[in-house]
Design a protein around this nucleic acid. Structure first.
Lengths: 368, 368
DNA sequence: ATGAAAGCGCTAACAT
DNA sequence: ATGTTAGCGCTTTCAT
């Protein structure tokens, strides 16, 4: 567009005498992409001017801006983020580690996080720990190499060595957030967006007690390192024991959760004496749905003889005929709140009070 | 551990005469993190040796390796990926763009992709287009800045300007894959992992015809840029027209899909004459479940008067009492296959024949 | 308002 | 098997 010259050194019309070979025959060639330098040459300015223009650091003459804009257009420049991040020491990447990306609660969380981060011009590097603290540590190490603008973890339980890693990350300016969990005892500078799973278990117990059941069972997840589910189970048990009630904790078999729920319920039911009047809470809605299926097959009257209480309010539970009672947590909101905290941190507006967001579970009372 | 010296220049025991200030008082300080140089100084070697050790480029003396390992340990080094990528022109990041991260099919896909990529030491940068080609373009531009090892898109429909972008990406060595779609007319070097949505619509139509229904309806998604759903609808309609059958295409109202299914079915049903015998196919399972709910409320006998056929085999549809007939696509497999293609490409083992993977939908015949 | 120089932390290429 | 040198493409810092 605007008289593209071939070499920036000849811009003033004074060709440089070729004392040394014009092309230094660099031993290393670029990777073929258009660079800032290419744009600068086209625009007849230096790379700094283009760089300033791109980051709108003001102080660009309108005339120059036009030339740069044209050069940007004709060259089709794409900024090299690695170079930019390396030079500035900042990156627009937020690293997120979840136990699983296909479970609807985490999918919702990623959705909320992603949408909010994108709106703020941040990108999301996602890894899954597969509910293994060992894999979590590995993934933390891997993502930390990108010097992310923030690190978002799921839960507050990590492997021994990880604490030092996180401390190091915080020290070098990378905020670390723990989501889907919440602990009153946490350090005041800790960043948490979630809820107390023991209290959630307590709430489940109280709900079933209020509905007048006599016996209680908690069906726990078979996933060894799903600590949050186990904590809900403990909260459930402790609450009932404190009330002088009997409560049993059964770990579901491994494999497909709905099927596991069916199996574990059938086995449990076979051992019961005739008239039952029992409240059963589950580590998640999948298990609960399975149990409900089994109960229907055994012709157990649901709200009367049996009170089922799921966890998560998965779409399956929500739309299931009649509806399963459950504890609803807004996973998308957890994601959004994390993104808010991160943005506040990047703007340096993070007051101590808002570093912890308590996302309360909501009891959804339905047919069961 | 091994006699850490303070400056690499004094390693040979010969202190450099301070002609110029010892510390050049660099105008730029590092970002506080441990660098390769720190490790090298601790180990008493150069950065290259440490770099080689880390990438196990063989040719390291066992003795040296021990020193380096110790230095790595004591310093707690984390590699700076931006620097590494910039220098090598390679990155271990794969960029993925999906329409939505919370829909179970895409959540499954991300899960499959993530697991396979992680196993290969690749990381995943995820963005969502929110079913908007405009946002898709924006996200493509954003992720391309990281010079990803591969770019994975959803669908083969993109905005006008995007083709040039993708061509440019391919030219600079970034393979571009399109998933969840498949087109026989695609260029032979195109990389696709998915299926032909018109044929899927055809399959849906044939299924309902075989079951003996007389009238046919396709309930399409209200999402304007869900091109794949629309293509299924077109395949459905065209097949029926070719068979000389009547078929109606109705676009569901916006909002929650289950509710939309209920509404659209109720409205349609109100207009029908008494004895109906109709096959209805849906753009997705959510709509189908909503319709089924409405049908139950209206007491329409399901397999007899009404044949409902969903799409996706979402958990909701799978476990729904009795079960909804649907077309099942293995989203996780799509993700895994993409990861396989990417790895093959990185190993330079990509033969022309395997660049396109056709993931066939499977008809799941259930109660409806 | 723009430019020149230096260097972010690492690796490719060329010694030795 | 290890070291030296010269960048990768950008931004910081300082000068004009």
């Amino acid at each position: 567009m605007t008289n593209p010259s071939q070499r920036s050194t000849s811009l003033k019309g004074i060709p440089i005498p070729d004392e040394k070979p014009v092309v230094p025959s660099s031993r290393r060639k670029g990777h073929g992409r258009v660079t800032l330098r290419d744009v600068a040459i086209h625009a007849g300015v230096t790379t700094m001017t283009v760089s300033r223009y791109l980051r709108s650091s003001a102080k660009i003459a309108p005339e120059t801006a036009l030339k740069v804009a044209a050069a940007l257009q004709t060259t089709g420049y794409t900024p090299n983020m690695q170079a930019g991040s390396l030079a500035s020491g900042r990156s627009r990447i937020v690293a997120v580690i979840v136990p699983n990306m296909s479970h609807s609660i985490f999918a919702d969380t990623l959705h909320g996080l992603g949408q909010s981060l994108q709106a703020a011009g941040l990108q999301m590097l996602v890894a899954s720990s597969d509910y293994s603290l060992q894999q979590e540590e590995q993934q933390i190490r891997a993502v930390l190499g990108w010097a992310p603008a923030a690190l978002v973890l799921t839960g507050r339980h990590h492997r021994a060595g990880v604490d030092a890693l996180l401390q190091q990350a915080r020290a070098s300016g990378t905020p670390v957030m723990e989501m889907w969990d919440w602990n009153a005892q946490a350090a005041p500078d800790a960043m948490q967006v979630g809820f107390d799973h023991r209290r959630a278990g307590e709430l489940m117990a109280q709900t079933l007690v209020q509905r007048g059941y006599q016996d209680f069972v908690f069906i726990d997840s078979s996933v060894r390192e799903d600590f949050r589910a186990h904590e809900r189970g403990m909260g459930f048990q402790n609450t009932l024991f404190a009330l002088g009630q009997r409560s049993e904790l059964i770990v579901a078999p491994e494999g497909d959760a709905v099927q596991a729920g069916q199996v574990v319920f059938s086995e449990w039911f076979a051992k019961q004496a005739a008239p039952i009047h029992c409240g059963i809470a589950f580590a998640n809605d999948m298990l609960a749905v399975g149990a409900w299926k089994a109960a229907q097959m055994q012709c157990v009257a649901c709200p009367d003889q049996l009170g089922l209480l799921g966890f998560g309010d998965f779409p399956l539970a929500r739309h299931w005929g009649g509806g399963l009672s459950t504890l609803r947590i807004d996973g998308e909101r957890i994601g959004r709140e994390c993104a808010q905290l991160i943005q506040a941190h990047l703007r340096d507006e993070l007051s101590a009070e808002v570093r912890q967001v308590n996302v309360m579970p909501e009891l959804v009372y339905r047919a069961t």
